[in-house]
Each structure stands twice: as C-alpha cells, then as structure tokens.
Amino acid sequence: MIVTLRDCPENTKCELIDSDIPDALKSRLMGLGWLPGKTIQVVRRAPMGDPTIFLVDSTKIFLREEESRMIKVKPLYPAPLAVAEKGVYKITGFSAGGHRFVERARNSGLFVGGIIEVISNPLKGKIIIATKNGEISIGRGFSEKVFVEPVRR
C-alpha cells in the first residue's frame, strides 16, 4: 500500500517512492540522500505530535507535517498495523513493551505469532480487523504499536 510519510508511526521502516513534491523540497531532500528506493526510518514524533525525526543512511533530519504529507512511501514489513492494507497478517511483535499493553492486546485476541485479517484500514480513525474472536475495531494509537507481516495463503 502507498501511504504518505505522515501516516507512518514511530519505528516504521518504509521505502521512498518517486512522487510529485515541490521542487524546493525535492532538491533539498535529494541533497540529503533521500532518493526513491531509499529506506526511511521513522524515529521520533515530537511531544506535540509534530514534527517528526527521520533517519536515512546515517543522517537524522526532522520534517513537519505539511512536508511529510507530500512524500509518498511504501511501508516495509514488519510494519505497524496502522499502515497495513487489506489482507492476512501475522503479528510479529509490539513496540510498546508494557505488560499492560500486551495484556490488553491478548484480550482482544492479538498476540505475537497470531494471525489476523485486516478488513478495512482508512488510514484515519479505526481499523477493522478479524481475529479468532471475531471482528473487532481498534483505535489508531493501538494499531501503531502492533507490528505485522503479511502471510500468503
């Protein structure tokens, strides 16, 4: 699925796609090594939700929401559920290691190694997935912390 860089939560790795961004931004990014095909790692979102630090090669830069919305990327798996398109996935891990989080996830039928199906992901608002316990909808904040990898059937 193609999403914007802004859609990618912390710890996502994604591949930069050639896209229509204003020349001013494009030339600057290219000088920093941001070429189509490069892997971008989403490192940190600022306390107030914007800007975000990204890592490409060994250079960390930060961009604001406006700019990162213009940049198109393809998430690399394992990626957060938040950017997963329709399909069947295996859960590979949680990025929030807290005990309570894992507990909560398990209660919703989400555990490492478990198989789930993404039924709809509008990239804004809730994601609808199917687990063994049936269909559930999960919030964005939660979905950003569940890492998945597609499985072929």
Partner: peptide, 8 residues
Amino acid sequence: SSPLTMEL
C-alpha cells in the same frame, strides 16, 4: 511556507 528540513 518554506519547507523545514533540519539536520540533527
């Protein structure tokens, strides 16, 4: 409107 790309 200037895009901000600041290196850390």
